[in-house]
Amino acid sequence: MKKISLKKLITTGIILATAALTLTACGSSSKSSSASSSNNTSSVAAIKKRGTIKVAVFGDLKPYGWVNKDGKRVGYDVTLARRIAKDLGVKIKFVQVNADSRVDALSSNKVDLVLANFTVTSDRKQVVDFANPYMKVSVGVVSPKNALITSADQLKNKTVIVSKGTTAETYFTQKQKSVKLLKFDSKTQQFNALKNKRGVALADDNTYLYAWAKTHPTYQVGIKQLGQSSSIAPAVKKGNKSLLKWTNNEINKLNKQGFFKRAYNSDLRPYFSSDVKPADVIIEK
């Protein structure tokens, strides 16, 4: 009898402790998810005072945010990050993130700014604030050069290869129901399927396909844009007006100076197939 009561006590204790923890965690995230102006540790003034800006970047997404063989962080996002630090007059500290932790890194003040190929979506707008975009991405279609697909009409009743969970899959299931889809779990599998001619073409993010076509010269991205394009933009913590405003001005200024075109030429062009033009990827105003 005594033993059972002890067991019960422990179980109750654990449940209570877990519940308390969950409750406080939820309560706080709704309370402090926005940065108020009074204690904003990522405001422009706070960053300048600290002398360092913490930027979240990818470490494994070539050619946007990656590490070269000398151990140096490079890429299109990284070049922009370094320029932003320079214009703020502060040092830069990179925090490597993966796709899932980009929002958390901002909301828990691990970073001031996210420059990690962050696509603007309405869901994400609820939890972070996006600045003006500096790049765009849309669904593209790659096919063999000797049987090139150049318009969506050519795909009717044909098989197109996609990866599960990508925007390409969503696009075809919603907008082009007459296209037969062959779905795969990984990038490697989908490209192997294309090489083995299990479909007439393969659809994925166009920026990803440009890079693949570069190393596979017998293929070409025949359709560069299907449907609407999405923007890729810097993100700051929800409510960080100070840094948001500064970043917006900075992006506009850099646009006027032709910074993004230069960054495209140095960081992206070497990795994209030669038929890709800057205007396919960057946003020029």
């Binding site: 494994d60 070539k62 890079a211």
Partner: peptide, 22 residues
């Protein structure tokens, strides 16, 4: 690597991805 520590797996992944295409 999930909390941004540069451990051996994280570095390994950087190297793999930097050379993944070639």
């Amino acid at each position: 690597m999930l909390i941004s520590v540069m451990d051996v797996i994280n570095i390994g992944q950087q190297i793999i991805e930097a050379n993944g295409q070639t």
